[in-house]
Amino acid sequence: MDMYDAPHTERDVEQKEVKISARGVQVYYGETHAIKDVDVDIEDNTVTAFIGPSGCGKSTFLRCLNRMNDTIDIARIEGEILIDGENIYDKRVDPVQLRAKVGMVFQKANPFPKSIYDNVAYGPKIHGMAKNKAELDEIVEKALRRGALWDEVKDRLDASGTGLSGGQQQRLCIARAVATEPEVLLMDEPCSALDPIATAQVEELIDELKANYSVVIVTHSMQQAARVSQKTAFFHLGNLVEFDETGTIFTNPRDKRTESYITGRIG
């Protein structure tokens, strides 16, 4: 199929169940007010894209969704983010459990310096998902298949993950993330370090993943957002400027700033 047209033809406009709902989110890095009062509803089985000029807060907001900002000492978060109606910043929530539910793929592929098998098996092992080696093998195979990497690596699962090509490494990281059976998959500019062919492979994979997950992707490429997402949020200077169907954002933006960005006047 022609992947450049596919998202448009298959675009799903019917209302889906809300997976993540953020209300009044504020993020401060020390003195800097990085995210200003963001409200957003992210749906299940949908690819939602965050776009905006660099430094606009889109990655910061993404990292709030699985509390990755907790690892930064100076970050402070206010407001509430609900996943399936539960506030993830509630005192009772253990970020470890949260992150098993909300997986993450990073800008630069970061496979661990271990074998391909161990990279994928790492999550399931720490979360105690497999009772024995056979089950673990099964999980690893399934994850690698979902990551569209199985056929390429099935004969060398013991080879080091760092020895793969850039695109393969990123798909390995995606497989690693889906191996823990998350419900949400966060992707922080997953293709920014990849060449066009690898990018196309990953984008196709993202489109397939939405069947099982709610996918949130941060991208600096408007074309990519247009290709892979159903919903798009435009961030600017820490504000969520506009959030709508991807088609609407790109063809008929309501806000002046969105239009300027889409047409390349800011950014």
């Binding site: 253990d94 539910k101 569209a148 993943l209 099982n212």
Partner: peptide
Amino acid sequence: MTDATNNPGASGPTARKHTSLLTI
């Protein structure tokens, strides 16, 4: 690229067991 489509929903939303975040 065919791996994923060959196994649609092997562990899809239906198979997913919902756990609450509020109980550890």
